[in-house]
Nucleic acid binder design. Structure first.
Lengths: 148, 148
DNA sequence: TATTGACCTCAAGTGAACTTTAAGTGGCAG
DNA sequence: CTGCCACTTAAAGTTCACTTGAGGTCAATA
């Protein structure tokens, strides 16, 4: 019998039991049944939690993630939308990579103050632009996680 | 007289006035004075707000940002923290790429069940490893914004 | 001068993602 | 069989970053 109680699942995932109960409450995972009062989870719970961890670290909300992995472990959303999401992710990845590069540059830069470093100043300009774009996007679509 | 009222500052930054008042309340920006009741902001507010936008997009909390750009306006951003944040971004980028790949795969895969698809399983394994690492990090530092 | 509209304050509300608390249950080691 | 202790529930509390609402002020325009 390969079933785990909530404590075991918590131990294997590193998530506190309270969080696992919460995930179950919002439908992110499901228990196979109970042993007495105690929830018993099958091994597929571990898979689902892996997907959840993946989505979370990618900046999606739990609601988004719930939408991506349907009740049965496969996505609910149409293929076209999945591809569009993937394209969004590509864009987000490019932005983050640029930010990371500039952060590293600034960390290594020998200029006495960050404000005097031209790269930093360029980054500031970009950040403002990003802010504006973000505003525009928010107005545009009222929607999906851009990773607040 | 180069001072902006809150509406003008909002227009230039894309932030709503309510957010700017909130930022002032928590000490992220300061107004130069009032014209009647109305706050008047100097041009350095724009610089500070650029820094704030930068910090936000890098995943810092407003409290973190407030700590980095002192009351005096000079950014005093610890280089070590910048590097740590860049490393976080690297991780986040890897996560995003994994998620993007998973999404694309799922959109294209014709396998009857994803659990039977080796690509899917490989992606999940990668995600689990990441989850474990993240736990370890959380235990290690108890601290700064890890992104939401 | 009267009105308009952008600003003001303060308090309360929001939503996400949990955590905490209080009171109770029940499997199992001793 | 008894007591421990990990589990259970429901409800309330927490943090972050704001937003919303009610009621008020005032500078500039008609």
């Amino acid at each position: 019998m390969k079933s785990l109680d909530i404590g075991a699942l918590a131990a294997r995932t590193g998530l506190p039991p309270s969080a696992l109960r919460y995930y179950e409450e919002i439908g992110l995972i499901a228990s196979e049944g109970r042993h007495g009062l105690r929830r018993q989870y099958g091994p597929e719970a571990l898979l689902r939690l892996s997907l959840v961890a993946l989505g979370k670290s990618a900046g999606f909300s739990l609601a988004d993630i719930a939408g991506m992995i349907g009740k049965d472990g496969r996505p609910d959303i149409p293929r076209g939308e999945l591809r569009a999401r993937a394209d969004d992710l590509d864009r987000q990845i490019r932005d983050l990579a640029a930010l990371r590069d500039t952060l590293r540059h600034v960390a290594d830069c020998r200029a006495p103050s960050h404000l005097e470093c031209p790269t930093f100043r360029r980054l500031l300009r970009l950040a403002s632009l990003r802010g504006a774009r973000r505003q525009a996007a928010a107005k545009r679509d009222l929607g999906p996680a851009t990773g607040r």
